[in-house]
Nucleic acid binder design. Structure first.
Lengths: 147, 147
DNA sequence: TGATATAGTTAGCAAGGCTAACCAAATATT
DNA sequence: AATATTTGGTTAGCCTTGCTAACTATATCA
């Protein structure tokens, strides 16, 4: 057994907790009827507004061919719309449709309510601990660009 | 825009933070050369000890056929070993090989060190906030079985 | 003994990741 | 102006990982 420092131990528990949290919540997203990668891309479009395929691929940390296919699927279900950019006719502008926006909000609401139900069992103090930790974690991750 | 309560807002930020954290760390795991589902299953075997295929599938929240194939892949790379259970000859016992154990530890070490490097930039107080939050989150999730 | 339940595997499908190779439009070079 | 290069996106084809349905082999129960 390798010995871990205090901080490494914290890192390990943090990682494991994040995995379990997402695993728990993922079930809710399945109820939207939209596969995870598609749901996630749609979410970027709804909250980030219309954008090009490359931008969307970058936002999702995925290669363009992968995103192209995801957009194909979303488009065929009428959840997003592709139009060619007027200023650069190579580029496409992808935007969420009304239907896509509505479905995404429903799903998000379900997921958030589910998680909130769990959090509501905690004390005010515990929730504050989580809020503080979120701040700290984001701060720690923000400095990752330099590595 | 739908209005969110305080707690729903916290839930939303927690979810988003977990996603970003795992996305950041995932890159490290790729360096092991083992695909994610395989790495995760191997991890269960290394830390949980030998177990049956059904147990392993349950631990990973995956159906038996899915796990059967993952074990095939791990076995063909000599990372795990399948033996038939003496007491129940239908069942198999799956265990990590020496090689599998070693590789897993290397990868875990890399991942944990990477995360720890980020956490080390925080103050002692901030790390304590994270530690407290982990406790609280696990408590909140533990009560999920009843739903 | 015969019926049923359980452990795992095989087959075949869909989603989502990748690289390589390509087309078309825009931009740069000469 | 003509040509070369770069850029945005798609297509083709591969791998991994999820699923269900259908199967085999062993255990268990009536």
């Amino acid at each position: 057994m390798a010995k871990l420092t205090e901080i490494e131990n914290l890192a390990d528990r943090l990682h494991s907790t994040a995995i379990h949290l997402l695993r728990l919540v993922r079930v809710q997203d399945a109820a939207t009827g939209i596969a995870p990668a598609r749901l996630s891309a749609l979410s970027v479009l709804v909250f980030g507004g219309p954008m090009s395929l490359n931008q969307l691929a970058q936002a999702e940390q995925v290669r363009p061919p992968t995103m192209s296919r995801i957009v194909d699927a979303l488009e065929s279900e009428d959840l997003v719309r592709r139009t060619t950019d007027k200023r650069d006719r190579r580029a496409v502008v992808i935007e969420a449709t009304e239907k896509g926006t509505a479905i995404l909000w429903q799903g998000r609401k379900r997921r958030v309510k589910f998680l909130a139900k769990h959090l509501s069992r905690l004390s005010e103090v515990e929730r504050q601990q989580i809020a503080d930790a979120i701040q700290a974690i984001q701060k720690a991750m923000a400095e990752s660009k330099r590595d």
